[in-house]
Design a protein around this nucleic acid. Structure first.
Lengths: 133, 133
DNA sequence: CACAAATAGGACTATATTAGTCCAAATTAG
DNA sequence: CTAATTTGGACTAATATAGTCCTATTTGTG
């Protein structure tokens, strides 16, 4: 059941919330309270987005998060990769995949899978956070 | 880690195998032996494809499977839906979804998600089994 | 300095999904 | 009748996702 993870879904909601808040920094608590996203989980998500320089953060009281890039410069694919790891449509598409696929000899669908992988990535790379704001 | 399931991967390999076999019926055992796909799992997959009229089957000895549609008339999305259930990019995209999303009031990303869902489906609907053969 | 409000992040648990296995029944050609 | 096959239910194992808990660190303010 191919699906976008909750983490990514929450990230989109949070990013929208932050981008609607102007220059003001926004706390994880604030987002959690107004969206019902579990606080602890949300914190992890925001931290990862910060480590990827999508968000900027200030610690300490009166701290919080703010956007570090323009929404139109943040591809959805980026957010997905940050939160859930590399987006590989099949196991054998994972880069540096050292586990030999047991179908290697017989698997003749590899090249169309590579093509599909490309189109898939393109779809999610062309979607920007601005499309969700 | 958004990914096509093994079931679908196996189905693609099996469908390719069958379509390469001309008019001859092909047994699950035969496919399993030459592709290393676990026999029991493969059987289930072929049965589901049969129930969906993508394959035709003959029981008994000298039985087996054959294509019931032209590869170019079988969308990948169909195979995915048959094997893994409805393809909904997020939980709230599942049709007749009666569980109220706890973000309903605050979730303002619904309309772009619907749009993404459409584009996603289009990608996988336009891919046909013939693209993998 | 002490405190409160934040981010930061490791470790863990619970739940759900996916993958795979086992078993028995029904069908059919020879 | 028998062997080869599809059919299909029930179960187990493995993996991934979602969520929780706890503690450390940072920093503005009284």
């Amino acid at each position: 059941m191919i699906r976008i993870s909750k983490k990514v879904e929450y990230a989109l909601i949070a990013l929208k919330f932050i981008s609607k808040s102007g220059d003001r920094v926004v706390t994880a608590r604030e987002i959690s309270d107004s969206t019902n996203i579990p606080y602890d989980l949300l914190s992890k998500i925001l931290q990862k987005l910060k480590n990827e320089n999508i968000l900027a953060s200030n610690q300490g009281s009166y701290g919080g998060y703010s956007l570090n890039k323009r929404p139109e410069d943040i591809p959805l694919l980026n957010v997905m990769n940050v939160l859930d790891g590399e987006t590989a449509i099949t196991e054998c598409m994972i880069e540096n995949h050292d586990i030999e696929c047991c179908h290697t000899d017989t698997c003749s669908i590899k090249s169309p899978i590579i093509q599909l992988q490309k189109e898939f990535e393109e779809l999610f790379r062309n979607k920007k956070i601005s499309d969700f704001v």
